[in-house]
Amino acid sequence: MIPTHWFLILSAILFAIGVCGVLTRKNGITIFMSIELMVNAVNLTFLAYARQFHQIHGLIFVFFVMAIAAAEAAVGLAIFISLFHHRATIDVDEANLMRW
């Protein structure tokens, strides 16, 4: 059996990569994909702990997180479509009508 912390470390790495994506990319959809990456890293952590504790709870948490991610994806993509309608781009740096 693989020790739990290997999974945790993998999850941390994935989470950090996701964060990096959010911070460094301009394409809205890529950013959103990075966020999905973060969420999946979290799922991995939950599952690792769930197995560690032999608890279904962690597993079910992941189930709900997936649902959340799905909902976010639906709304998020709709927002991008709307953004594209307005500006013909989904470069988030272009969304700068409001500042200061």
């Binding site: 020790p3 739990t4 945790l8 790495i13 989470f15 990096c20 911070l23 460094t24 032999h54």
Partner: peptide
Amino acid sequence: LGYAGSAAFGIGLVYYLSKYAVMELP
């Protein structure tokens, strides 16, 4: 800052996760 920050974040997390690692499984 994005690259450096997330790298630092990741390294820190990995460091502490292995520091407080729980080895035995039930």
